[in-house]
Amino acid sequence: MKRKKKGQLEIGFNWIYILIAGAVILMFFVGIVIKQKVVSEQKLSAEVLRSIEGIFTGAGLSEKTTGPVDIPELTMRFVCDDETGYSDYSVEGSGVRAETPWQPIFSPTKIKTKKLLTWTLEWKFPFQVSNYLFLSSPEIKYYIFSDEYLLPNLFNFEYNVITYDQVKYTDEEQIRLVFFGDLLNNGVLPFDHVLRDVPDEKVTAVLFRGEGVVFYEKQDDSFVQLGEEVPLIPSTMDENANLYAAIFSTDPDAYACNLKKGLKRLEILSKIYGKRIKAIQDDYFLIDSLSACAFMIDEDLFYGASLSLEDIAQRCQEDITNCVNIKGTADEIEGISSNFIANTACPVIY
């Protein structure tokens, strides 16, 4: 009887032992697989960001270029905090991010796609200040309520839109409405309009009125203002890069934050150009005290204008709402430059 009990105990204990050992081994391997999965995803995100960083650098240096960038299907997040000036982009959920402290990148806050669309446009004020990089995707549709402001053909947009009836929804990732002058129907969507049933976070709008830009988000059946109105910083080019920047940005804080990157460049360049023209005049007088070019340079006028530009850039960086009525100074410098260009023997101002 005792022996029978011993055998039963031994067999039972063996099975328990096998189960425990088996479970431990299984958990060990499952743990390794899960850990490797996380590491692989992070590695993929890092590689994608690395490739994109190179593409963004190249795109940011080439003027007026557009191009598609094929990437693995993922969701990219773009952050630019107006208060701290911190900015980066990352693959959502990966924890891997690349900082962009100086490069102005205007894009929706989130882009889910396997093809990024890029467009580079320079901001001149009046000299070349910075190249802005605009990002979007084929899954983002723009409806522009104007026939004047077109995007490059690469982008998914319709222009000369007049009524809400022309605005459709065919399962796009995002819809962006671009208004000029005033919101259509005070921003209230018509009854039974397809956009009413679209999730709010997928539909945004921007309004250009006078010298300001207002951003909107959809809340149920109407558009509600997001944040404060941001001044539309002018450009001395026909294509105002700051206007297109507001079309691509969906967040007013990120828009203002990226604008300040350009303004920082403007501040530095104003100083350099001001000192440059002064130095050129001094050299001309050394070479020839009767130099026509030297006399053409009205040092006070140009130097004063460049100081004003520098002052404008500083004030705008402190508070973007200070950026009003600033085009006059840039036009003044452009006027001085035109006089120089007319006299081909003299160096250009910028």
Binding site: V129, L269, I341, V348
Partner: peptide, 11 residues
């Protein structure tokens, strides 16, 4: 390609 360095351009 720094605007701080590149030669100034005219039209």
């Amino acid at each position: 390609f720094l605007p701080e360095l590149i030669c100034s351009r005219n039209v």
